[in-house]
Structure formats: C-alpha cells, structure tokens
Design a protein around this nucleic acid. Sequence first.
RNA 1: GCUGGAAUAGCUCAGUUGGUAGAGCAGCUGAUUCGUAAUCAGCAGGUCGUCAGUUCGAGUCUGAUUUCCAGCUCCA
Length: 585
Amino acid sequence: MSEENLYTFENETYRKTYWHTCSHVLAQAMKRLHPEVKLAIGPSIDNGFYYDFDTPQPFTEAQMEELEAEMRKICKEKLKLERFELPRAEAVAYMEERGEPYKVELINDLPEDAVISFYKQGEFVDLCAGPHVDSTGRIKGNAVKLTACNAAYWRGDSSRQTLQRIYGVAFPKKDELDEYLARIEEAKKRDHRRLGKELGLFMMSEEGPGFPFFLPKGMVLKNTLLDYWRECHKRYGYVEIATPIILNQHLWHQSGHWDHYKDNMYTTVIDGEDYAVKPMNCPGGMLVYKSEPHSYRDLPIRAAELGLVHRHEMSGALHGLFRVRCFTQDDAHIFMTPEQMKDEIKNVVRLFDEMYSTFGLTYQIELSTMPEDHMGDESVWHFAEDTLQAAITELGKDFQLNPGDGAFYGPKLDFHLSDSLGRTWQCGTIQLDMQMPERFELEYVGEDGERHRPIMIHRALLGSIERFIGVITEHFAGAFPVWLHPVQVKVLPVTDRAADYAAEVARRLDAQGFRVEVDGRNEKIGKKIREAQLEKIPYMLVVGDRDMEAGTVSPRHRAEGDLGAMDLEAFSAMLRQAVDSKERK
RNA sequence: GCUGGAAUAGCUCAGUUGGUAGAGCAGCUGAUUCGUAAUCAGCAGGUCGUCAGUUCGAGUCUGAUUUCCAGCUCCA
C-alpha cells in the first residue's frame, strides 16, 4: 500500500487509528480539566470512539463542550505521540504512581509474555497497544464532536463499577462531520416509533410494556406482508402449522429450554399443573412431527409456523418494535435425510433471496461453526458445516466465517440485511439442530426398512414480523411501496360538486381490490394534498369539474408529482402493474 | 436489571424566584367551493404519569413508584 493511500480516511485501518488517537486526546482533555478522574479504556469503534472514565459525578452537556474546546487546543499543540515499553513490575508501579487503578488491573491481567507498551503525548500517558497517528496535530480539531455521554460497566460486567462513557466522532474535514451529523438526523426522522405513531401503524401502552398494539393501518400492512409471505412459502413447498402458545412445563424440560432459558419464560398454573408460554416454536413443531410415523418418501417436510412467542426481556432492553416481549416469529422446521440437506439449504437461501430483494434489502451471510461447548459428535458437526458452506458456495454467495460462534446444538448461517441508510439488521437465520431430533426421538423409516433419525433445520426469514415491520418502516422512511401501503390511493375531490364522482371512483377501485380512501372534507385541494403527502400515500387522485366533464382522474404520485389527467381504466391498469410487480418507487 | 435524563390538551411543545395552566396543529361549529404541500372566524378541550410528603399554598421542592428516552448488560 502506498504512503498516500495509507492516509486516506476511507482506509479502515487509518480511520480506526485516527479515532483511537482521538480517544487519547479526549482522555488528555479530561485529565487536564478534571485531574481527579480515573481512566478506564478508550478504543475506536465502528462509528467513532469512546473513553470510559470513573468520575465522582456524571457528565453534562455543558462539560462536553468544555472537553471539546480542550481537545481542539490539544490538536493545535501538535503533540508528538511517542511509544515506549516497560517491564511488567515497572509498568504497574508507573500506573500506581499516576493514580490509575484501572490501568493497573489491566496490566496485571495481561498475559505473562505480553509486551507492555505506553503512548505519551505531552504530559499525558496511556497504557496502549497502539497504533496511533504521529501527532495530535493530525487530528482536525473542529471536526471532532462528542456525541453522547452515558453509563457503561467496567469491563462490561454489570456487577462491577459503573463508569461514564463519552462517545465521539471525528473526521479529517468539517464537511464530513456535518454530513455524518445530517445522516444521524435523517435516521432520527425515520425512527419507526415516530413514524409508527404518525402513520397510525402501532402503539404501546403503559399497561403492557414491550407488548405492541397493532392499529387498523398497521394490521393492513402486517396482513399484506403475511399474504406475500404465505404465497412465497407455498411456492417453495412449505406447509403451514400452528402450535399452542401455552404448553405443559414438562415439554420445556424435554426440549432443554427450561434449563437454558427459564429466566426469560412466562409461566402459569392450570388445574394445579405448571405451564409455560412458548419462547420458541420448536417443541410444538416436534410434537407435530411425532404425531404420526414418517417414511423417507415423506421427506423433506417443510413445516412453517407464524408463531406468537413471548420472552421476558429486561425492561431496559425494550425498544419500539425492535425489541419486544411478544412477537411473531416466522419459523419453519425442515425435516430431511442427510442426502437432502444441501438442496434443502439451497432452497431456503433462494427463498430468502427472493423475499429480501422484493424489499430492496441486500445481505451479508455469516457462517458460525462449532463452539467449544457443543453437543454431539465432531464428525457430524464437520459434515454439517461443510454442507452449509457447500450450499451457499454453489449458489455463488460470499460469506464471512465466525469460527466457534455456532449454537451449542448446531452450526448456523445468519443473514445480516443492509437498509437504505447502510445500517445492518440480523433477520434471517438457518440453524442446523442436532439436539432436538435426539431429545424428541424423531424418526423416519428409510428405504432399508430401518428407523433413522432425520436431520432438522430451524430457520426464520424475517425473524420477527414486528421487528421486520420496524426495519422496513425505517428503510422506506414510511413511504411503503404501493403493494404494501395501507392506503394505496386517496381520492381528493377539489370541491363538493365532485364528491359523488369521487365516491364512484373510489367504489370502482375498491371493487378491483385496491385499498382506497376519499378525503371529502371541506378543505382546499392544496391542504388535502399536503396531508396525503405527509401520510406518504403512493397515489392521490385529484378529481374536479374538469375530470367530471371528461370522465377522467388526475393522479399524483407522492414522489413524481402530477401525472396529468387520464381515464380511470388507464390509472387502474397502471396501479395494477405497480402492485403486481411490487414496484418500490 | 444498572447509570443518567424525561413525563403538562389527541399531537408537538411553553410555563420565570412555589401563588391555582398557555400556544400551534388536530377536533367541533359557522363562513368559504377553491385544480396539485397549510382558507378564515368562533368554540371546546388538562385533578400537569401515579402515590405520599414539605408548605398557608406545589405543574414547579422532596421521596417512592410506573412508563418512556440514551447507553451498558442481555437478545437462546
């Protein structure tokens, strides 16, 4: 890599180095203004950097500005960053002398043979492996912004000291900082909690924290999404089942969920017996499989379930539709012979491909392999991992390997979707489950007349329907494609004279299966258009005297504006085409 | 769950040192009948999240509690 290239901000290594140095500048500013503060750690992260401090008082916005000002000063001082190393005993003594207990703990926890290095800039020294830019003068002081200050635990351990974490971002140019901040603002405007309220999709209530209520428009959206989901699954050879929400606790012991997840499960007592509300659909699916004997001729069985699951998430984790205590998992369990495995995985990936691309969502696949703590034979694991890998490779897909990150019961493929703002969401997952068929003693009779254990995969495409609705709300900024929008067309009569004509137009579109509303209020057309635009309605139909006379409608597209007068038939044909092709504009 | 912050009309928000609550939008009524992003006027709307406490007096101060927000932790 050329010298020049190394110093571009697009280069991730350089960007992280730059941000890492920023975190040192932040710590230096902090020590100058508040010498009593103790230093914890200060790394770069994907979107900037942070530094954790142990402070007697939480920080305020005003103090953040003072810190920024001091950071700008340090940048102007062009302090050289110099690396030096110390033997362990001296390193500990050095940090003890400087009154930094957290640094002492870090040094003590370093492996025996570790090189203990420090970086010095002016009067400030930090324990750090580096690397760093060569001078604080490299940092553009007026393009540094401290974005938030919050609590964090020392070493991520909730039983330990709470620290104050200050987050920041920095860019080589002020313009880039402004652009970044504008993007954050845009994301805020698209927040699904705000849009969900504005568009009448869903609500939350103090009476049920984490349990979303779907409003009429939200239900149209959800049902339309599920109609599409069912249509796709049928084409890919799935059958649909539904299993109970409450099941005997004995079942949860058998499935192993009780041992692993009882803290997150809701329980109840019925006729003196213990029951639990399902946090997953699998055990019910196993019972369905076991309800009758199976021949190899029946396989593969692809049983999908839109199962309503409940999980007791911690109160602080709740977040709109993204993190709820009750959601619909679009699950499926596929039972098959080992020979069918590869083709089945390909079939699942093709289905994922089709549905994700409908929304204009791209994805990155991650393959997670056998963890240290796993159940089952290693050779079976390797066969399973190889099969997953072969399936995606044969489909020409790239993947990222996460060695040792699989579930204890099997390897998995995770699908990370990228939305229109470049944010990623883990939605789809394909997990091989080598445990459940054992625990439930699932069987099929093979060609040889013997009993065999089927292979099972557990997969979810959208993950949680509720969360996915949140994701696409932000992805489309509320401007859902016409096939999905709760109101596809709004008819806007210009005056009262056009009221009957508007009603007739709406009636005819409704009869053709479109979702139509009429805005018959006594308001000016400009106001009706404005409000329909704010509702992000795909098509507005302006109808006035001219249209009545000519027997036309004047459609306006939310993004393309006035489309000019046309016959209702011409409009409905255009609409039909846009809906059927699931056009996204 | 932890740390910090917030809660005032359906929505977005104002409310000075404690003295009995205000605007815009939405709603209702009337006028207006208008061609591509806000017509005008009038009316109505709130035990200021909840429960205690301090005080002659609390939206305002104190404590508890609920929910929400940011982050941490967690997310099988």
